[in-house]
Design a binder for these strands. Structure first.
Lengths: 139, 139
DNA sequence: TTGGATGCAAAAGATTTGCACTCCC
DNA sequence: GGGAGTGCAAATCTTTTGCATCCAA
């Protein structure tokens, strides 16, 4: 079974039709640590899939997000990034180049004690802001 | 010395001209825990300051942010919220009503060990996502 | 007086929507 | 064949920008 067959099966098991566009997006995201925006996914795939539309990318990303295959990262105030790595980890945001870097995280270390009664906690997100190694040299 | 005189002095000490618009925005933000967007600030003040423009609100919020008087909250993927409380605390974001609630935080509890060498860490942000008490009842 | 600040309108970006057409199942 | 998915263009929403005018210092 090759890569595309696996992705095909993945989509179907999620109740999603396995269209060429979705397969292409899934394949592009697989193992991708660049935390792309919808626009970045679009630009990356457009050369090989000229008919791909940005709306489809948004639709697919939302479908994959609902299916738990992709996570949205709210770390850059100006745009939404997406991460195919749904495992527990954190992100470092470089305020200069706006790049996002994965950081390892320890699930046991999550502070949750201070949530007042009545709130239903679903997720704790830890973001790190600063300068990446490359940008420090430049400044 | 009344409230406005204080705010006036505040602005001047920050190197900012004390215009009526800025005084109004500063006064509106003082002690405000609603985490307003620029649009919300604009709508709140427009009745009393009909000539106020949204661009001025954005300008002022950015100036106050640079001056350390206001903090930007990147927690809602669709818009930017602002917080006049610059003390250490966290935020809870309700995924249903999109409301933001302040949470107490312990600065001593910040995880920073896992930052790789070469990165310059400036800030650690912890966000809590889930449902607020009101929205839980409705659902 | 004068440079920073304002207001307006237009522009720029990001994301969503409406709808006819397509093609996966 | 039916309905979910696609592509396109237009619309929407948030934020930024250009510029002439204004006003706080």
């Amino acid at each position: 079974m090759n890569r595309l067959s696996i992705l095909n099966t993945d989509l179907k098991s999620l109740g999603l039709k396995a269209t060429p566009q979705r397969l292409a997006i899934l394949e592009f995201l697989h193992g991708n640590t660049s935390h792309p925006t919808a626009e970045a996914v679009y630009q990356a795939l457009k050369p090989r899939y000229p008919s791909l539309s940005l709306a489809t990318v948004y639709n697919t990303l939302e479908a994959l997000q609902k299916a738990g295959k992709v996570v949205e990262i709210t770390i850059n105030p100006l745009r939404r990034h997406f991460d195919p790595d749904t495992g527990f980890h954190h992100h470092f945001f470089c305020r200069s180049c706006q790049g996002i870097t994965d950081l390892e995280g320890d699930p046991a270390f999550l502070p949750r004690a201070e949530i007042p009664a009545g709130f239903k906690l679903e997720e704790v997100i830890i973001h790190y802001y600063g300068l990446c190694p490359g940008c420090q040299k430049k400044l």
